[in-house]
Nucleic acid binder design. Sequence first.
DNA 1: TCAAAAGTGTTCAGCGTACACCCATGT
DNA 2: ACATGGGTGTACGCTGAACACTTTTGA
Lengths: 232, 232
Amino acid sequence: MPHTSRYQSHDKHYVAIDSIIFGFDDDTLKLLLIKRKFEPCKGCWSLMGGFVAANESVDEAADRILEELTGLKDIYLEQIHTYGEVNRELDARVISVAYYALINIKDYDEELGRSHGAEWFSIDEIPPLIFDHGEMVGKAMRRLKRKTIIQPIGFELLPEKFTLSQLQSLYEAIHQQNFDKRNFRKKILSMEVLTQLNEKDKVSSKRGAYLYKFDKDKYDYLIANGSFFVLK
Amino acid sequence: MPHTSRYQSHDKHYVAIDSIIFGFDDDTLKLLLIKRKFEPCKGCWSLMGGFVAANESVDEAADRILEELTGLKDIYLEQIHTYGEVNRELDARVISVAYYALINIKDYDEELGRSHGAEWFSIDEIPPLIFDHGEMVGKAMRRLKRKTIIQPIGFELLPEKFTLSQLQSLYEAIHQQNFDKRNFRKKILSMEVLTQLNEKDKVSSKRGAYLYKFDKDKYDYLIANGSFFVLK
DNA sequence: TCAAAAGTGTTCAGCGTACACCCATGT
DNA sequence: ACATGGGTGTACGCTGAACACTTTTGA
């Protein structure tokens, strides 16, 4: 028997992507959700999703689907978990791979989002979600918290240049707790992955606050040499 | 158009499970591998795997496949990652969900394993593996290390009753480093999830060492109350 | 001049880490 | 008696956590 026939006796499945898309604005961590325009459960809120096609890898499908909704490429995207209950969706058996994305809301294509029925929700005002999407969001939140403790990935949610206060607000939003300003700054600066710029941001204060930039090269160097970060 | 037709325009895929099966014996962390009995790459070493069927969840498939190889049910099994490159296998496009399992080698059905061409390999003598299985093993090792730092899951690899020395050997095997005996014991006991028994193990020493048992109830209680463990 | 955010040091407690000797027992 | 693994306590340094005041400047 030709060895390919080994495969033919097995079942095939629809494989979907669901994306938990985080953004940060107004000192609040937000999630991009879409109102379903089709059955089942038309009008329910749901995560952005789509199906994996034959000619693309699962990661590529996640990138493509994110771009379709937000217009953004090269986004931080990380696989979280695969959900495989037989009846997790109503009309067909669909295995779904969940990813979370961190995007800078300012870069997001609002027009495009609206055309898909997308809206931002503050993380503590998430409406009930379809299927197991609520569970996915919970897992993504826990992962994001953990990740930002050991690695400075949260930067993806900020503009390229940011103040330490903004960064602190971001961390506070992610961890849903406040940090001491002095301790936070000490800790973050001691990681030595931020570059202070010769510019000040005068939008949010009269005095102005120094802008900083995330130094990816330095970060990569430290990671490559086994240094780790611990916030908190 | 009936809403089910939304699904029909998408591609279906084979979805497989690959299991990284850890065991512990002779103070060594081991991995159960199988020698492939079929093409492609007959004779290569590979992880145990199988396909997800239409009538079972992905987790159920992982349980079933593990049982087929080891004869064991109710095993600690945790999903790690889904591998979805288009050409990761040679003859067909297969999306694979990787799991790792922790089993007690003593309970393992050697007969059954042999019939599948399975053999245990010490973790630092792993042969080259087929496809992306080497990558999977690496990820599983890192996950196991991380997990055992923050949660006492390693117990699954030991017999029900064990000595503190055995437990330390296990941790040393997982982390590939030695720990100080006094510090290790202090730390583990301070977690308060071990129960000392009124029995001694006299196999490995003349004096005899107290046997301990993992107290799952106490552990669940602590987890439920937000307590966390940190080893190291 | 005052309100609002930026910026800055020190102290203390707890924890991880290093370290060495006596104990019990079978051979 | 001795070899083998079992079992125990202390001291030090680092780091996380708590805590309050001065500076700048636009309105």
